[in-house]
Simulated scan of single mutants.
Amino acid sequence: MQTQPTKQDIQQLFDRLAPVYDSPATRFFPFCADRLVNYVKPRPGTKVLDAATGTGAVAVAFAQALGQEGRVMAIDISPGMLDKAEANIRKMAIDNIDLHEMDAERLDFRSGYFDSVVCSFGLFFLSDMVGALREWKRVLKPGGKLAFTCFETTAFQPMLDDFAERLQSLGANLPQGPFGARRIASLEHCRELLHDAGLVDTAAECVQLGYHLRDENDWWEVVTSTAMRALFERLPASRQEAFRKEHLAFVAQQNNENGLWMDVQTRFASASTPE
């Protein structure tokens, strides 16, 4: 068993994922971005930090909501992701987003600069989650809002449990203890993280962002387009094809007349800085 992935591991993984991250099968990312805007309700003309922006889905959604007088600073540790985000932003003809390669746990912004800080499906990749939230709190104005999203334990089930259990049974060298999204255990844990970072008015709720995929091949696209790919790659190369066939045979059994239901139950958590 190995320890949690390092920052370098995460950077290299997302550099590899950047060309395929905007897959139609993973459209829950832009779905979540739109819901996050409605959840935060940023005021037009304000400044927002998007931590771990990835290919920019959240940055684009907030930039559109803020209007030309507002500004989004979008950061990521992966140059590959930022390159893809820049291409997406150009395609949308948006000019109120600034992209920066930056560690979300060590920000290069002055204190009290932003009206809002948001992070979609990124907090659980950071080694010190409370420390990161404290750093995000530092750059918020008094009364500013911080919000993040993460997956509920039901998300991607039953496919995800079969994926993880089958990997382990075939000798994949998986991290010790809870890893990835499972590092955030519940809605209560979301509120505890925010409270421990010194934030107030904590809140958390679940929203279903799921949809039907066409079949098990779409599910494999989800696997290979997201951080699940890193777990698959921990399997010895000689066993990967057998794993893929066996796992997809299980997934095919979950199909119905509407296709393959993919649960994407998502936690939305928020808090404010003290006035």
Rank of each mutant, 00 (worst) to 15 (best):
T3V: 06
Q4E: 10
L13Q: 13
L13A: 08
R16N: 08
R16E: 08
A18R: 08
V20P: 00
V20R: 14
D22G: 13
P24C: 01
T26A: 10
F29S: 01
C32S: 12
A33K: 01
L36W: 13
N38I: 03
N38W: 13
R43T: 07
V48F: 09
L49T: 03
A52L: 08
G54F: 02
G54Q: 04
A61Q: 06
F62T: 07
F62Q: 00
F62C: 06
A65H: 03
L66V: 12
Q68C: 02
E69I: 11
V72H: 06
D76C: 08
S78R: 14
P79S: 07
G80K: 01
L82A: 06
L82C: 05
A85W: 03
E86S: 11
R90E: 09
M92F: 05
I94E: 11
D95L: 14
D98T: 15
H100M: 09
E101F: 04
E101V: 07
M102F: 13
M102C: 09
D103N: 14
D103Q: 13
D103M: 06
R106K: 15
F109K: 14
R110W: 03
Y113W: 15
D115C: 14
C119H: 00
F121K: 01
L123M: 05
F124D: 04
L126G: 00
L126D: 00
L126M: 14
M129L: 13
V130C: 03
A132D: 05
E135T: 14
V139R: 05
V139P: 09
L140E: 01
P142T: 02
P142Y: 04
G144W: 07
K145S: 08
L146D: 00
T149G: 09
T149A: 06
F151D: 00
T153S: 14
T154L: 11
T154F: 02
Q157G: 04
D161P: 00
A164R: 15
A164E: 07
R166I: 00
R166N: 11
S169A: 12
L174E: 11
G177A: 02
A181T: 09
R182F: 03
R182I: 01
S186C: 09
L187T: 05
E192I: 09
E192S: 13
L193P: 00
H195N: 04
D196F: 10
G198K: 08
G198M: 06
L199N: 07
T202C: 13
T202N: 10
A203S: 10
A203I: 01
C206L: 11
V207C: 06
L209W: 05
D218L: 03
W219A: 01
V222Y: 00
M228R: 12
M228A: 12
F232R: 09
E233C: 12
A237R: 15
S238F: 07
Q240C: 11
F243P: 13
E246H: 15
H247G: 07
A249H: 14
A249S: 15
F250V: 14
F250M: 11
N256L: 07
N256A: 03
E257Q: 15
E257I: 09
E257K: 15
L260H: 11
D263T: 12
V264E: 08
T266K: 09
R267T: 03
S272T: 12
T273E: 02
